[in-house]
Each structure stands twice: as structure tokens, then as C-alpha cells.
């Protein structure tokens, strides 16, 4: 499960990520990370470190913070 998630994140980054993915030039808006570390990099690291369940929760929490009023 953990490796499935990690590979999915890598696949996302490789193709779709507006920051590094190969489809990046097709986006109409630039990559808009408000954090130093992009959400997918963070998700990858945290799932690797804390495991599937805890890591995923933290990653979702992080994603939900990606909006104008960071708390």
C-alpha cells in the first residue's frame, strides 16, 4: 500500500505536476506553491517517514492548507 501510494505520487510528479511534470507547459497558470516544499514532495516524504495512514492524513492536512489564508 505504501509503495503504491509513493509510486502514484511519483507518477503524478512526472506527468502532471505543474512544477516539474512533462505536461507543465500546457497549464494556463503557473505552479503556485505557497510552501517552500511542494505538496507532492511533502506527501512523498511524510508517507515514507510516518507510514501510510499517518502520512496520508498529514499530507491531506497540508493540501487543505494550500489556500489564501494559511493558518
Amino acid at each position: 500500500m505504501k509503495y503504491l501510494l509513493l509510486s502514484l505520487i511519483k507518477i503524478y510528479q512526472f506527468f502532471l505536476s505543474p512544477k516539474v511534470g512533462i505536461f507543465r507547459q500546457f497549464y494556463f497558470f503557473p505552479a503556485a506553491c505557497r510552501f517552500e516544499e511542494s505538496c507532492s514532495d511533502f506527501a512523498y516524504r511524510i508517507i515514507k517517514e510516518r507510514g501510510t495512514l499517518k502520512g496520508s492524513l498529514l499530507a491531506i492536512k497540508r493540501l487543505s492548507r494550500c489556500h489564501p489564508f494559511l493558518k
Partner: peptide, 30 residues
């Protein structure tokens, strides 16, 4: 905290309307 952040954005004329979800809604068009 939110108030102070807003003041900072205002001072630098940033309209912090961005985020990763905005990126993903473009996918259907592409």
C-alpha cells in the same frame, strides 16, 4: 495572525488567490 497576514499582503499588493487546486481544474480544458 490572519489580520497581520492580510495587512502584509495588502502592503505588497498581493492578492493571494492561488493554490494547487486551481492548477488541477485546468486539466479538463487541456
Amino acid at each position: 495572525q490572519v489580520k497581520a497576514q492580510f495587512a502584509l499582503y495588502k502592503k505588497h499588493k498581493v492578492n493571494p488567490l492561488s493554490g494547487c487546486l486551481l492548477t488541477l481544474i485546468q486539466l479538463p480544458i487541456i
